[in-house]
Design a protein around this nucleic acid. Structure first.
Lengths: 163, 163
DNA sequence: GGGCAATCCGACCCCGCTGCTAGGATTTCC
DNA sequence: GGAAATCCTAGCAGCGGGGTCGGATTGCCC
């Protein structure tokens, strides 16, 4: 269970765009060098972001990308959703009508998926965390480093299986 | 970004064990048939659960598995952790010294990973959701079935993320 | 107007991991 | 002793993630 590295790259890319001050676009090449990511792969990543309307592009020489909205108005769930395609802890969570979720395991009148409740809550946890974080926060975080962040947010031990 | 189907199967398996009343063990075969899952694969799944001390086994004829603790005392983060190996939204969250988290992207003194804050919060959301759900709840849920799951059941009585 | 710098687009490919199977060894009850 | 179960190890096929490549197009600048 991890997000794909496409999500990672995409978020980094967005942060990098958010760091820019003026409104002249930033080229992918610059970002690729700054973050040390493969340029040709970034092209695919940024394409997803553009399709989602999160970034704008201008072509030609001195072209590049810029945020479509101010960073403070971009919640990270949009970003991750654009990159990841969907935010669901289980494949069977193909979200049907918006707001509702259908578990494909529900065959007949038989039984609901016993796991539905669990994945539901997990999904909520994820989405809330993403919604509650704006790109602006990440930009800020990347600028001044960590001291601004209270330990209460950061200091969660990574849970890992004991051997 | 999904949990593996091993997690799905394992949770289903645990729920099935939780449904059993007496203390005679349940065979994998029975579970495989009840949940329509491949038996030989379930063997691997249950092995992880056993290693984590979540289920006990008895061998031989009429053997099988049973919960090592009452379902009410089993939080789902343990289960998912045992099945999934780790609960981290990003590979770079390889836990270094226990308790701390090192993002492998942190090269020099340069900059913290700008995405760290985000994945941290996401991980918290996931873990809290899992911790806040007991196996007993899922068992109960699987028993009384679906009709109109109120939203209140779906959402956790847990802190909201930040904002 | 020509060249260069950039975005765009699609095809391709490698490899590791997930999901699953196979076969056997061992234990235990009847 | 045999049937029914857990245990253990090996192996394997498919697929998707992650990345490359080549080229087409667009637009600035000298």
């Amino acid at each position: 269970m991890t997000f794909s590295s496409k999500a990672e790259y995409g978020v980094r890319l967005m942060v990098e765009l958010g760091r820019q001050e003026g409104d002249q676009p930033t080229s992918l090449k610059a970002i690729a060098e700054a973050e040390d990511l493969p340029l040709s792969y970034l092209e695919h990543v940024v394409a997803s972001l553009k399709r989602a309307g999160l970034v704008e592009s201008s072509r030609g020489a001195h072209g590049g990308y810029r945020l479509a909205r101010p960073a403070g108005e971009i919640a990270m769930d949009e970003v991750v959703l654009a990159l990841e395609g969907s935010i669901a802890p289980m494949e069977c969570f193909t979200s049907a009508p918006p707001g509702k979720v259908a578990c494909s395991h529900e065959g007949d009148a038989a039984s609901t998926c016993s796991t539905k409740l669990l994945w539901m809550r997990v999904q909520m946890g994820i989405v809330k965390a993403l919604q509650g974080t704006t790109l602006a926060e990440l930009v800020e975080f990347s600028r001044c480093g960590e001291p601004a962040i209270p330990e209460s947010v950061m200091s969660l031990p990574v849970v890992q299986a004991g051997s």
